[in-house]
């Protein structure tokens, strides 16, 4: 979706400022939000794509003015409500009144290490051949769905080159909206910086020819791409 999370190429946020010796967490609630989010993920009521969509579909003004763990907090509350696991009334009173969703059993301490170490691979087996080869020129499609996609605005309707075939991976666009994994070929697609941002923009930055070689690489699924035979 064209939401507050799709930030590539936006301007006006100012310089990147690094906090020296930054800790992992700035307050205890941040630790709890990280731990709760990961623990609930292991419960299997939603997948990573639904979880990303819950965060990116926050109103842009809220998304951009919230700290990252605040965004995560809002994301899990939204998912918990959508899955009828908690209600506003329960949140307000901190007392359980909705019936329990029995499919969600709490991740137990003795299973944490194995769960974290196993991760959740996104690759799948498939006997479908890949449509594109390394070196082939492709053009990204021009889409503006209100639902989840991992094709950012700045890379839509642009010409690039397939630089690697990663394998068959879960398609986030369908996975995020309950339409199944629909696993398909995933490619690394390489774009010239000039193709994405124009000559003026790129040449303004540095007065040398090196910038003309600058590239941006994105990992994109087959349905985002069409063969491009123009020179």
């Amino acid at each position: 979706m064209n939401g507050g999370a799709d930030l590539g190429g936006m301007m006006g946020f100012g310089p990147v400022i690094e906090e020296p010796d930054e800790p992992n967490f700035h307050a205890q609630w941040e630790e709890r939000v990280l731990g709760i989010t990961v623990a609930l993920g292991a419960c299997g009521q939603w997948n990573i794509d639904q979880s990303r969509f819950a965060r990116e579909s926050l109103p842009p003004a809220i998304y951009l003015s919230s700290s990252y763990y605040e965004i995560w907090y809002r994301g899990i509350v939204k998912l918990l409500k959508q899955n009828h696991m908690i209600s506003d009334k329960e949140l307000a009173t901190a007392q359980a009144s909705l019936p329990r969703v029995d499919e969600c059993n709490a991740l137990l301490p003795e299973n944490v290490e194995a769960t974290l170490m196993a991760g959740s691979p996104a690759n799948r087996k498939s006997d479908q051949p890949a449509a594109f080869d390394v070196g082939q020129q492709v053009r990204t499609i021009n889409i503006h769905p209100e639902t989840h996609t991992r094709l950012p605005r700045y890379a839509r309707d642009k010409t690039g080159i397939i630089s690697k075939v990663h394998g068959v991976h879960v398609l986030p666009d369908t996975s995020a909206v309950g339409q199944g994994e629909q696993a398909t070929w995933l490619y690394k697609v390489s774009f010239d910086a000039q193709t994405l941002w124009g000559d003026t923009r790129v040449n303004e930055q540095v007065n040398n020819k090196a910038t003309n070689k600058d590239k941006v690489h994105l990992d994109l699924w087959q349905p985002y791409l069409k063969a491009d035979t123009t020179l």
């Binding site: 918990l80 696991m85 949140l91 709490a106 991740l107 137990l108 301490p109």
Partner: peptide, 26 residues
């Protein structure tokens, strides 16, 4: 902080999370 605390206690009461497991993850 208060909202996160309320959420954690609610989720624990409903058996959706185990607070010791949350500690382990952190």
């Amino acid at each position: 902080e208060a909202r996160v605390r309320a959420l954690e206690s609610l989720l624990g009461e409903k058996g959706y999370i185990n607070s010791t497991a949350v500690d382990e993850i952190v």
